[in-house]
Design a binder for these strands. Sequence first.
DNA 1: CTAGGGTTAG
Length: 565
Amino acid sequence: MTTLRQIHSHVLRSNTLPSFFKAFALFQIVGFCALSSSGDIKHARAVFNKLKNPDIFSWNSMIRGCSLIQNPSNEPIYLYYKLIKRGYPNPNSYTLAFVLKACAIILAFKEGWQIHSHVYKFGLDSSPFVQTALVNFYAKCEDIGNARRMFDEIPERNLIAWSTMISGYARIGFVNEALSLFREMQKEGIKPDEVTMVSVISACSSSGALDLGRWVHAFIDKHIIKVDLELTTALINMYARCGCIEKSRELFDAMPKKDTKAWSSMIVGLAIHGLAEDALDVFSKMLEANVKPNQITFIGVLSACAHRGLVTQGQNYWSNMIGYGIEPLMEHYGCMVDILCRAGRIEEAYEFVETMPISPNAIIWRTLLMGCKKKGMLEKGEIVAKRLFELEPVNAENYVLLSNMYAANSMWEKVSWVRKKMKDSGIKALPGCSSVEIGGFVHEFVVGDRSHPEAKEIREVLQDIAERVRQAGHDPWTSVVLHDVGDEEKEGALCEHSERLAIAYGLLKTKSPVVIRVAKNLRVCPDCHEVTKIISKVYEREIIVRDRVRFHRFVDGACSCKDYW
DNA sequence: CTAGGGTTAG
């Protein structure tokens, strides 16, 4: 950068350079400075501001440069508006692509929407770069409908356009859409590269689809796609989230170079498997390797501590994190609350939440409420519940949690009071939704959905499960009543519990381990946990369940997640 | 000077 500055001052002093060359040199310096790390955007800005009549190249470089720094603001959009207001020079396809990317990075939906109309105004809608930038912008803002619309309007879709759309679907968990697009792309004769495969693998991780992930991995090998740092990280994450931590480790150990994200991925993966010692060991190796941990690394480290009940260590890591100058996020506070709650130190946890410098979110209060429930601290629980309901008055899960706290203490009047309150406010328990992966396709089951073409066969399996679980001395349906439906629907609910439906379908359709993902609004409840253990034993099948918060691997009547309750 | 990629609590 020093050299660049010297060149820059030389250019300014020089009178021998022809003016067009001077402009070109200036533009290059602006571009290079802007593209370099955040420290030098200041220099780029200074150079840019000195230009009397910056040409479109300079504007473009400046817009691009300040969207690529570490913590981008709305500066690129501001610059763009300044350019438009001035009326000259006219923005070109580069300008629009850059500013749309900036909108995608900072999720400036309104602005991007407006700039979208400029695309037609300036007649740039035929530029593949602008088209792809639009798809990317809508996808990043999670307006997948518009992203798809833009994608469909592209007459000649190249590899980048396809990859953008696939990544858009993968990011928001539209697994089947991502994968069918991937197949469609190949049908059109477009060869995927390593960037495409990262998105495809990510789709597999978020669905917990191990078979699918393995298939995609084989595809990568077969088509000799370069497995670079990003793709390896995606694979590590996929194997960890799909239950194959051994494979995850294997890939990680074989990596020639590991950056912060790769290390973090491994640490988080071990943490969700309850392998706290390994996670912490990997963390210290990361430090030995002189790789700087980031916020996400510490989420992994702290959650590993929580899973193992390592209070003092957790607190030490917390101070280490502060020492690194990493500002704690909501997630980190959440981990600390979890650590204290699991150790039964509810008062301390409450104190911690009360003194947080940022306003605690619902997850934090819920963690605390779960702690109160576990410890039977009713009064504290009620105080916490009050705060929770202020933040999330319509989340059925909170009502269920509070009612369970009362039920655990046989306070039936209060239980029915909570139920009445729920009914009066018109809040219904959200339907549970679970998915199971079979033969490369993810099948979703929603509570109460009987439209499945194989409903009859599934029902038979369910009845078989019920029979065998009963023989093992457990009531097969207690969890159904507690969890998914009201008591009046007990009979009808036998076939509707989404997790059980997914397991039954998995047992029916595949011989490999049954991989279930319990979606967003559900957690595996204690009863289900017990029943699934029994199923794994009596059917001699491995069942992998990933709920919203944790990872369970059921083999021969036991669960890997020993610390769960 | 253009467009697409990996890690995020309960």
